[in-house]
Design a protein around this nucleic acid. Sequence first.
DNA 1: GTCTATACACGGATAGAC
DNA 2: GTCTATCCGTGTATAGAC
Lengths: 191, 191
Amino acid sequence: MNTSERLIESTRELLWERGYVGTSPKAILERAGAGQGSMYHHFKGKPDLALAAVRRTAQEMRATAEAVLGGPGTPYERIEAYLTRERDVLRGCPVGRLTMDPEVIASEELRAPVDETIAAIRERIAAIVEEGKRQGRFAPGLDGQDIAAAALATVQGGYVLARASGSPAAFDAGVRGLLSLLAAPDPGRQD
Amino acid sequence: MNTSERLIESTRELLWERGYVGTSPKAILERAGAGQGSMYHHFKGKPDLALAAVRRTAQEMRATAEAVLGGPGTPYERIEAYLTRERDVLRGCPVGRLTMDPEVIASEELRAPVDETIAAIRERIAAIVEEGKRQGRFAPGLDGQDIAAAALATVQGGYVLARASGSPAAFDAGVRGLLSLLAAPDPGRQD
DNA sequence: GTCTATACACGGATAGAC
DNA sequence: GTCTATCCGTGTATAGAC
């Protein structure tokens, strides 16, 4: 791996662990085993390097999600596969994490890949829900966009619960909760 | 408001906006209109001041949640009231936000109030779901803890979706999605 | 391309005057 | 209690040698 690549990969790791504000060029260079000069030769500065890292992370996450959501199975099974796919829960989401960073949110360029990735996955899930409705597998009253937002939020919020408690259990519980509602052969509520 | 109070309040605001890593003593002092000496007189340092701020924010959030969840209405209505209570969505959750901070997670003391608050609200919602089951208003197959985790995750993840897109709409969509599943007079899924 | 040297502001904290 | 002065390391960037 060349120096430029190593810089991007180190930045991705640090952004995931510590966010944009908490990531210094110095830490990146140490992790990449490079000197100051290399970084400023390949990139204009920290924001430029972070942009490259964020774009790659976003792209990768999109591909991962698409691989699962575009896989085999009924609509329910594909959503289930997305929610239960293997995750390093306590590390959190490398894309979602960035939304808590004020400097990322303040930068149109940095926020764009984050927004696009989340929007794309949401659209994908929404389409699957609509497909399930057409097949009579989901109640016609469900709104694809709303269910997709709830599913994505369950994942993103699951990370919060898990990290707060120091255990992945709460993430799993949230996913089970949502799936039990989505799968319910009986109504959730009866009045 | 005395200096100590102003320091705590300024810290709370900054922790909410920028997180622990992104909050400097200097910024706190400027916002509080105090000098260096005041801060180190009342508090041992940044971690100590942050602890006071986090504890207060956590306590306040717990009280707010309890006020809504302990209010009048059916179990469904109380959960709905919690999910739809007025929020400054784009600012995110002042408690949940802290879980993305590596230094908060690394500190047993700082993480404790965050964990306890989230756990308490989750227990509260879980109890309400169980109450609803006993009343025959929720399907007996639902698990209170799981539904509670899903509800909390929907809120916490809703902030992520909203901040990513720069609009509160996605938060509202997620809440609608979850409530539609919880309320479903028809099953969500029919196979 | 990569390194070292240098720069200067900021982060976090202490000392001591008032 | 609060202020100013001072300290040292780090964050971010530039300059210029190799």
